[in-house]
Computed example of a mutant assay.
Amino acid sequence: MHIDQEVSQEAKKLIEASILVAEEPINIGFLKKLFAGQFEHNHIQQWLQELQQDWQGRGVELVEVATGWRFQTKAEVQDKINAVNPEKPPKYSRAVMETLAIIAYRQPVTRGDIEEIRGVAVASNVIRTLEARGWVEVLGHREVPGKPALYGTTKQFLDDLNIHSLSDLPPLMDLQENPNEVALTLSLEDAVDSELKIQLDEANLNDITLSSEAT
C-alpha cells in the first residue's frame, strides 16, 4: 500500500507525541491500535526508524528496548546531568548483584542452583530485593520433590539495561576475562524520577563461577 508523504508525516508526528508523553515504552501493537489498524506493522516500523534518524545529533534519542520504544537522554548528556544531581544511586549488596548476574546468565535457576554456584546460602531478602525492583520473577517450578521456584529476569530488567533481549547481554566470556572492567549499567529511578546508574561490577564476577554445568 502506497502512503503519500503528507500522511506519513502526520503519522510520524502522532507516533512521536505518543512515545514522548508515555510513562512506559510503547510497542508497535499499541501504535497499530492508535491508527485503528489503518497501517501495517512494516509501515510503523519504518516510521520509527525514520524518527530515530530525525533525532540523531540531539541530547535525546529514540531507542527500542524489550517492551517497546521510548525516548531517553543520551548517556553522555545524562552523565553531565548526574554530575550536578546530589542524589546518590541505590547501592545493592554484593550478594544481590552476584545473584542477579547468576539469574541473568543461567536462567531459569532455583535458589538451590544459585547457592551451589555462589557456595553460600541465599538469604530470602536477596531474592525479595530483586523481585521488588522488578528485575526477577518466578517463571515456574522445577518438577522435583518440593517443586522449587525457577527464577528468571523480567522485561523490566532488559528495559533498565537498555537492551532488547538477553542475547544483547555482554558475552559471558568477556565478563570472565575482564571481571573488573565490564559493567552492566542499569537505569534506575529515584524518588524524583531521575535516571541513576548502578554497575554490576560490584559483584566482582571473578570470585564466582558461572559454569554451564550448574543445574
Rank of each mutant, 00 (worst) to 15 (best):
L14C: 07
A104T: 14
L161D: 07
A101F: 14
E61S: 11
P90F: 09
A83M: 02
G140C: 07
A121R: 11
V21D: 12
I198T: 08
V77W: 04
T209W: 07
H164A: 09
V65K: 07
S8I: 10
Q78M: 09
A11W: 03
K91H: 04
R111Q: 12
R94D: 11
E16L: 10
Q38R: 14
L34G: 06
V84S: 02
V120I: 15
V96C: 10
E40I: 02
R133S: 09
L169R: 09
P148D: 11
I26R: 11
E177D: 15
G134I: 13
L186K: 11
G57Q: 06
F30I: 12
G134P: 08
Y92I: 00
G146I: 11
A183Y: 00
F35Q: 01
L34R: 02
E143Y: 03
T154C: 07
D160V: 07
Y151E: 03
A83N: 03
A104G: 03
G29R: 03
P145L: 09
D160E: 03
E116S: 14
D201L: 11
A203N: 10
I127K: 07
V109Q: 08
K155N: 15
V122I: 15
G37H: 12
I26F: 04
Q52H: 02
A149F: 09
W47H: 00
R106H: 04
H41S: 05
I114V: 15
I114H: 04
A66I: 06
Q45D: 07
F39P: 01
Q156E: 15
L188T: 08
I127N: 13
A149K: 13
F35N: 05
T185W: 13
A183I: 00
N42G: 03
A95H: 05
Q53R: 13
N162E: 02
M173H: 01
K88C: 01
I81P: 00
L150W: 12
Q45L: 11
V182H: 03
I208G: 10
V63C: 04
E40P: 04
E24N: 15
N162Q: 03
E195Y: 12
V65A: 07
Q199N: 05
T185E: 00
E24A: 07
I3H: 01
K13I: 08
L210N: 05
G59W: 01
E115S: 15
W55S: 05
D168C: 09
L130W: 08
P170C: 11
F39V: 06
L139I: 08
